[in-house]
Amino acid sequence: MDFLTPPTWADALAIRAERPDAVPIAGGTDVMVELNFHRRRPGVLLDLTRIGDLTTWSLDGELLRIGAGVSYTRIIEELGDRLPGLAMAARTVGSPQIRNRGTLGGNLGSASPAGDGHPPLLAADAHVELASVRGTRLVPVDGFFTGPKRSVLAPDELIAAVWVRPADGPEQFSKIGTRNAMVIAVSSFSLALHPGRRAVGTGIGSAAPTPRRATDAELYAAGELPWDTLAALEPGVARRFGELVAEAASPIDDVRGTAAYRRHALAVLARRTLTWAWRDLCG
């Protein structure tokens, strides 16, 4: 095995192009578990932690560009005001030690249906910046995942950054697990209200082969919410929204929960997060 530590992004892309057997490693919180348990024996470990650009974020026009190597702890501390939904999700990841090390790029790289970073990125219409020696492309998050632990990331590509608009309305994230820390979601849900354009964003986690949006639920809520009057949310609207979110999922039975439970939980999470977010909006 080789351990390569490219000092620059260009060097990393060159290695990635030349060595298809290279496994990128950022925070290592997924990769090292696989190595420690002999589940993976890559030809090359490609360490991304020396590339300064990857660990920076910036406001570029109206969009935030978050380097793939920014840790959850930094997302919470430095971006929590602008991306409250993503920060809420980040606070539920693992433990302080995992959040200090784990990155958004690594979460996308693993592409787990249960990755907690994904639902808020879906709800906020984020894009993923992928790069290779061939060039750079921007992929909408809802087109990034192709199956459990699979994505459109090509063998010669690396995840450079996530592009996302700062929240323009209330955001919420909620997750079901067996304890408050250190749990893989049984199911999770993210919601973003965009009062300016009267739209609603959603993201479902851990209840389908990939993280996904609940498009029918988004359109339903956008049409039914009393944007003009900012009147209290009708319980019937919140309930119907929950049903539509549950219908958008296609969960399975596994060790963490049954499909039926996941659907039920999602309906509850969706109803609650909409209620909280609408209350936030109305003040």
Partner: peptide, 29 residues
């Protein structure tokens, strides 16, 4: 545990508390 679950390997890496079992040796160089 060697999988980040127990925290018994917690050390500071450049002043940040991390699980040493999840840091590749070369990353600490």
């Amino acid at each position: 545990c060697e999988q980040g679950e127990c925290g018994s390997c917690t050390v500071y890496l450049d002043g940040t508390a991390v699980c040493a079992c999840l840091v590749a040796a070369g990353q600490a160089a």
